[in-house]
Design a protein around this nucleic acid. Sequence first.
DNA 1: CTGTTAGCGCGTTCAC
DNA 2: GTGAACGCGCTAACAG
Lengths: 361, 361
Amino acid sequence: MSVDKRSKAITLQSVAKALGVSRTTVSNAFNRPDQLSPELRDRILAAAKTMGYHGPHPTARMLRTGQTGTIGIVFSGSLPYAFSDPVAIAFLQGVAQVCEQTQASLLIVPVLESQTAPITIQQAAVDGFIVYGMPEASLVLEQVLSRNLPVIAVDQPNLIGLSQVHISDRQAAREAAAHLLGLNHRRFAIMAMDLLSDRYKGLVSAARMARATVTTTRERLHGYEEALRAAGITWQQVQIGECPLHNPMEDAIEVALALLAQKPRPTAILAMSDLLAIAAIRAAERIGLGVPADVSVVGFDDIPLAAQIRPALTTVRQPLIDKGAIAARLLFEEPAVAVVKVLPTSLIVRNSSALAPKDAE
Amino acid sequence: MSVDKRSKAITLQSVAKALGVSRTTVSNAFNRPDQLSPELRDRILAAAKTMGYHGPHPTARMLRTGQTGTIGIVFSGSLPYAFSDPVAIAFLQGVAQVCEQTQASLLIVPVLESQTAPITIQQAAVDGFIVYGMPEASLVLEQVLSRNLPVIAVDQPNLIGLSQVHISDRQAAREAAAHLLGLNHRRFAIMAMDLLSDRYKGLVSAARMARATVTTTRERLHGYEEALRAAGITWQQVQIGECPLHNPMEDAIEVALALLAQKPRPTAILAMSDLLAIAAIRAAERIGLGVPADVSVVGFDDIPLAAQIRPALTTVRQPLIDKGAIAARLLFEEPAVAVVKVLPTSLIVRNSSALAPKDAE
DNA sequence: CTGTTAGCGCGTTCAC
DNA sequence: GTGAACGCGCTAACAG
């Protein structure tokens, strides 16, 4: 509870009364300097300050103007997780860039997955929403849409009628696979993040693959598949491990170990995120395999860490920060008709990929 | 602009009218289920939904109740930077944990340093603020305080009368230095982040050190000094390099190179952040020095990356996530009298520190 | 340049 | 269980 009691409630009104001017004039002193003489304005501002009035009440102002100066952002999954995901963070960084430029505040809205109707979204005082990476058919998304505010969807290519920002996950994945194919690799394994939202961890059956419901993951999977198949590698020979993105590194390493335990051992691992790729590298280290001498690893996203680890990670770069900046800018522009921005990706070749070992051919 | 026009403005009032009940009853249907029969409530909720009314208007509700369900957080420096600082991110993660538990939203408020009166703070619709790592005597802090809301200050031990969360930077720094002293090191260099807010980069003079105005940095510096002096090492023999925390890694490497170019070369580097420590390791690599064979490096903070790089970083751990969680919880509790929480730190010994090389003694 | 008049949409007594 | 009345604090017309 705040310290002030009713008696202390200091408002535009009371300042006006104390000064013997009208409420409007005081309001103008704060919001429309051109509407009154500089002297009067200074006098009002000074008096206000000494009275302990530091400006109009935010929510009253919002109610009146119908604007909040705030953009809302809602992540799929839990908030603490979002703040531990380098990809989400980089995205936020981009959003923050334009928030800073426009002096808009950024409201991060927690949503309880368990809850049927996320009340936090209903109650968010924002001018628009960015929804980031929601699974298809999400209650949260529904609730956001019901607010009838501008919405930008990020990484959900399947939504129609909404402005969107995403990449071509499928093509990017194809390039990653093509790179390894070009290095003569023929025995592949894949590390995937969530295919469904059930937090399953381990090797993946064909049936599960077919049901994959998180768009991004499914698209990347298809990209790998297309490239591999085109090179004459049947999809049946490729083992896939799944590890939810928010699981600890150790879980991912475990999955990678299972993949590397296959006979014959894969010489190349396609990881759907850089963190998974790093787990693969750690797993290889742990059983005495050299990267890239014995096994090549290619990641996805190009998070800052990718360049820092050793061996530096070969990966598909997507413009994470730009993605955030573009999404935010789009929200402010409010184009009359839904806009879809597909951002470019590029393969960054570093030291975690090399020619397939000779004896493997 | 939103699509709806005046005519479409759908409100508690219009729902009530359409149903032939009073506005209060509709309000109760949403907020106080015990005030009306379940049947009526269901009927109202259903009708509201079909009319496109999904709940009370957020800002109107806030104005009326005087509560926002939101906590504000303001960082020193630029927002995009905060989102690229692993330390700030970990802190946010902790804040997010309790936000998720309490279903409170998190408002991140950008402040333009250049601006004389940060209007974004005045206009933030929040129930309280967390201010993170502001320099002493900050206009921003002043503005926050003028809002007369609960405030928690983080990493600003110098503020009086406010609830606070921080660590004992000085003691932690002492431990880091003591560790290296125990490994027989005698020739030290220090990598510091911002001593003042002027973004200076390079070697530091004694005069500048004396003027240091960022509390955390100054305290760590003193901690190093105390330990070293107690071991008979005069402060004059210790060269200090400064590199602003938000500068690119390359700048920090440059400073580290300058430090390593000293004659005689230091065998130990005390870095005030893990990122600076990593820069030191990279610098050593670049000129063919082994870590820890030729030079030992100790960091500060224990960010996740510290354990990932090679050599894994010896560093001082502070409970970053807890710090955020505790700050947020404190904000909700609103203790009657200001509370100061000093969190524990501990030295984490990994592989970047070792016995001083023999030939150096 | 100044003041008067109207609400913005809602939550909460307090009678009925 | 229900409805009338009041006002949260402010800004946007408009009239002077």
